[in-house]
Nucleic acid binder design. Structure first.
Lengths: 237, 237
DNA sequence: CGAGGATTTGAGGCCACTCAACCGTTGTGG
DNA sequence: CCACAACGGTTGAGTGGCCTCAAATCCTCG
């Protein structure tokens, strides 16, 4: 696997794979966050997913890329040419199984997000985003951040992910702080003062959900050296 | 595969798998449409996906079900107990590969839908839904419906899928008919009068998208007997 | 220290939801 | 056979949440 792939660094804002690119690549995030976006003909664009450390991105068994992959922060990733990677999958069923588990988990997260976008108002979406990030931090195996939330991406990207605007996010975050549910440390760091209240505001049943996800992947595979103080290299977009 | 599974019929509206159900089942739709929903604590619910003929539904390699699976129309499905099915996947890599391809396709569709919900207004969503249905009809291998659209589910479910209301859908469908872009045959059947205009209204680049999906799965595997005049058994919800 | 970007705050307008009534179809019982 | 209820869909009027536009503030970096 190491023979066909190699580590590459991407600066924040760099496009890794453009929409429609033909001979595509597969990547595995080592550190940082990759944003997965799609663009409408009139230029509007929506962030449809985020790839965090340990997760794969790119298109398997497809010709053209329907999505664009960009570095939302400074990113280190292990990248593979598509064809050899697919050949590797065919010969190593254990690896194919791992990739499938990742796809199933992404599918589950995507469908949760469809619900967030489909029937929550913008306030609830902001809350859901915070809890979503909080959950994935724990999934990525970051231990110290139990009471804290770190936004891995800037307000503009969050707005793109939530299907709303930076102004609306700002208002709702400030409202949460006024209600003493969170405490604002700086633009991208928060302390959770009342986790129960936060969860109830999102209206999602975290009791049932938490275990089904958390127990799945703990082998994030991120080298210890990269697990430093912050899982996103804090090079905000 | 036939030894561990068996065909079962579900009447429209029946719950196949409830949220949180423990020993779950895997199913493959033979005819009809299965709706995949998620519920908020306060009762709001969102349709996060639809399973159409030839597609699998249910949870693989998970303990509790995060979603609810219901028959949106009268449904015939081949169902398997989860554990034996997973064992079958482990021993038949070809089947596992097929399931993975399905998961990857579902993921792609989910992300497209995230974009629809995240940055399109309700009018554009109605258009996208029509084209989405149109696309999946062709994927399911229904030949005659090139100029026609059939809503496989009722207005209530469409509203649940689009994250809007039945009233809003009604207004926009009527608007499309007034602009002579579609012609209303009955409540769930439409003729496309101007496909190009319809596609441009959705603002999605169908040129790039169409091929990448259509070329993938043609082995829908639906028995000929079920491919009759209508792929949904027209037992509308 | 100044320029630029990101975030916050404020005021106004529009889209879509809510509530309500109406219409066509279906199924049921007298 | 018709009356009636039940249901899904359509149409209309009013309201509110969120986007838009605009300006102030904070932070970063040269």
């Amino acid at each position: 696997m190491n023979r066909i792939g190699h580590i590459r660094q991407y600066d924040s804002g760099i496009t890794i794979v453009a929409e429609g690119d033909e001979p595509s690549i597969i990547g595995r995030v080592a550190s940082g966050v990759v944003r997965i976006t799609q663009t409408l003909d009139d230029g509007r664009q929506q962030i449809v997913g985020l790839a965090m450390p340990g997760e794969y991105f790119g298109h398997f068994f497809r010709s053209g890329s329907a999505f664009m992959y960009e570095a939302a922060t400074d990113v280190a990733a292990c990248v593979f040419p598509q064809k050899p990677f697919e050949a590797l999958l065919a010969s190593h069923h254990g690896l194919e199984h791992t990739v499938m588990m990742g796809a199933l988990r992404d599918l589950e997260l995507s469908r949760e997000w469809i619900m967030v976008l489909g029937c929550q108002n913008t306030f609830e979406r902001v809350v859901s985003f915070m809890l979503h990030i909080h959950k994935r931090m724990r999934m990525a195996g970051v231990p110290t951040h139990d009471r804290f939330i770190e936004f891995p991406i800037g307000r503009r990207d969050i707005a793109g992910y939530l299907g709303t605007t930076v102004e609306t996010i700002s208002r709702h975050v400030q409202a949460l702080a006024r209600q003493r549910i969170i405490r604002i440390l700086d633009n991208s760091h928060f302390e959770i003062c009342n986790l129960g209240r936060l969860q109830s505001l999102s209206k999602q049943h975290w009791n049932a959900m938490a275990k089904s996800i958390t127990t799945s992947e703990l082998d994030s595979g991120v080298p210890q050296a990269l697990k430093g103080k912050s899982w996103s290299q804090s090079g905000l977009a």
